[in-house]
């Protein structure tokens, strides 16, 4: 079992995973935000490696990535920042990025950098499960990197089982047929039926729900069906005016509040 899995299994429920883009709104915001999240009680974060062409992302994450790249963010700086975050906060860190970023650095070197800087796992939406299985599974293991695969409302039962088998972090349940950042107030009955269908499959991997989680209502609903949820675009929207620690603390408290 990977550290990440152990952590999620030990928490069991109500896990809040906050996503933010490295280097946004300012190049050195990554560490500041991570510190504040840790201080607010968050234990698991997903850090976006800004990419020029993020196909699965909506306008909010796209714009944060563009800004981060303009700020001069790159992978060398990112790994340095992650290392510092890990040392200072002990947060569990998952990196989210696109396959080309890993390929360009060289898969092995990339994974080695992940391990050396304290990354616990990766989410790479455009890495197909079959390619991972035939080319990368062993390498991820060697560098102790947990992978988390996405499933969607349209993923077949067979592929859900495959995602469950191959994921060594969690299964990332994408809440809707959509890119990130879709704005709704509540999950639809159709979405809840889908969450329930997945819960009833009793996967061996923990499940976190993401995409479109932006309110305490979403978070609570997600936690009824899964071990926790991931909040991305809505958190990034909070940062657009600058990093404000009071705002971050309130946001985390508010999302996780009891009814």
């Amino acid at each position: 079992m990977t550290d990440l899995q152990q952590f999620i299994q030990s928490k069991k429920e109500g896990i809040l995973n906050i996503f933010f883009t490295a280097g946004y709104p300012h190049l050195d915001s990554t560490l500041v935000i991570a510190r504040q999240l840790a201080a607010a009680g968050v234990e698991l974060v997903e850090i976006g490696m800004p990419y020029s062409d993020p196909l699965a992302d909506g306008a909010t994450i796209q714009q944060s990535s563009e800004q981060a790249l303009r700020n001069g963010m790159n992978l060398a700086i990112l790994f340095e920042q992650v290392k510092q975050i890990k040392e200072e906060t002990g947060l569990r860190i998952v990196l989210m990025g696109y396959l080309n970023q890993m390929l360009r650095m060289g898969e092995e070197r990339f994974l080695q950098n992940c391990r050396d800087s304290g990354v616990d796992g990766l989410i790479i939406p455009d890495l197909p499960m079959e390619v991972y299985q035939s080319q990368y599974q062993e390498l991820f293991g060697r560098y102790q990197q947990a992978i988390s695969f996405l499933i969607t409302p349209r993923t077949s039962v067979e592929r859900i089982r495959l995602a469950d088998r191959l994921s060594s972090g969690f299964v990332y349940l994408v809440a809707d047929n959509s890119i990130t950042g879709k704005i709704t107030d509540d999950f639809s009955p159709r979405q809840e039926a889908y969450f329930k269908r997945i819960r009833d499959m009793q996967l061996t991997s923990p499940v976190l729900i993401g995409f479109g989680i932006r309110t305490a209502r979403h978070f609570r609903a997600a936690c009824r069906f899964a071990q926790g949820a991931i909040v991305g675009s809505e958190f990034i929207r909070q940062l657009s005016g600058g990093v404000d620690d009071e705002k971050i603390r309130r946001f985390v408290k508010n999302i996780g509040r009891k009814p």
């Binding site: 196909l55 699965a56 396959l99 939406p125 455009d126 890495l127 197909p128 499960m129 390619v131 695969f149 996405l150 499933i151 969607t152 349209r154 993923t155 077949s156 592929r159 995602a163 994408v174 047929n177 959509s178 890119i179």
Partner: peptide, 11 residues
Amino acid sequence: GGAFVPEMLYP
């Protein structure tokens, strides 16, 4: 070549 698409587009 190949098909490196996110799971959302797999079907």
